[in-house]
């Protein structure tokens, strides 16, 4: 891959993305349009995250990629390999050793620190899209801070089901201004978005949007006084490491429907197991 520039993208493209990142940081939660490039991987498979990572990486960085919390899912492996080849950066699976972490659908369990950058892959950056398919309309709604429709939708859930029936990509309000889609993370992860020490960058390639949360930004999950937001997860301990406070994947382990629950964050789970913690299904 030596025919390509450092981190694949040409310098002009990186400058364009970098400018968008800076505006994103200056206007937390606002979606900055950017001229997303066609990447050598399909739209919808992390092209936004990859472009943002390519624009922030330096040769000295240590890079980690997770998909569904895991380092070894195929698309995470594929993206990690892409940057090993095109940027020659060190990679790691250890959360605290990484300076840049690209993620799809999870925030690591271990709190991130000030030196770190978390890059999210975002499929549909517009939190209002499911209420209003037109970009021209949703842009207006954001400009007028017209978020009533969103509250109506959430409240309809409550009157129908007794609960807000949104369990992932749960909308948040940033610094009391922009309603933002946190990408399809489970709502269990929502409380980690606010007041995070690390910089959070969101890239949506196909939809051509970049947005950001600077560290220690106020992020509130939308809710109602009588129905406060509740972060939820499967009510089980991890079968491998015994953790009771981590987000769990459910696995079907036999053909009679036997199930077990395991941390979705593989690095977190392995570190706990190495430290001697043991769940009921561990060897």
């Amino acid at each position: 891959m030596t025919d390509y520039n450092f981190a694949y993208l040409d310098e002009q493209t990186k400058r364009m993305i970098r400018r968008a990142i800076l505006k994103g940081l200056a206007i937390p939660g606002y979606q900055v349009p950017f001229a997303s490039r066609e990447m050598p991987m399909p739209y919808g498979w992390g092209t936004g995250g990859v472009q943002v990572s390519a624009a922030v990486l330096t040769p000295e960085d240590t890079f980690k990629v997770i998909d569904q919390g895991a380092d070894d899912t195929t698309n995470a492996v594929s993206i990690r390999t892409f940057f090993e080849r095109t940027a020659g950066v060190e990679t790691t699976t250890t959360t605290c050793d990484a300076s840049v972490i690209q993620t799809r659908h999870r925030i690591p369990e271990e709190p991130l620190s000030e030196g770190q950058i978390l890059v999210y892959q975002v499929p549909i950056p517009e939190p209002l899209r499911f209420l209003e398919p037109r970009e021209s309309e949703t842009r207006k709604m954001h400009s007028l801070e017209e978020y009533g429709l969103m509250h109506v939708k959430l409240y309809e859930d409550i009157s129908r089901h007794g609960h807000i029936a949104t369990s992932y990509a749960y909308p948040v309000k940033v610094e009391g201004r922009y309603v933002m889609d946190p990408s399809p993370i489970p709502k269990f992860d929502n409380p980690k978005l606010g007041d995070m020490a690390a910089i959070q960058l969101f890239g949506a390639g196909r939809e051509q949007r970049i947005y950001a949360l600077p560290p220690y930004t106020q992020v509130v999950s939308l809710d109602f006084e009588d129905h406060p937001f509740e972060a939820s997860k499967a009510d089980h301990p991890c079968g491998m490491c015994g953790a009771i406070d981590s987000y769990l994947d459910e696995l079907i382990i036999d053909d009679t429907g036997g199930r077990m629950f395991v941390c979705s964050d593989t690095d977190f789970c392995e570190a706990r197991q190495l430290a001697g913690h043991k769940g009921k299904d561990a060897a």
Binding site: E11, K14, I21, T58, P215
Partner: peptide
């Protein structure tokens, strides 16, 4: 070395804007 030096400079600018 534009690719590397602008990457480093950008990280400084980004950190400054983020903090």
């Amino acid at each position: 070395d534009p690719a590397t030096q602008s990457a480093h400079a950008f990280r400084s600018i980004m950190e400054a804007m983020a903090r």
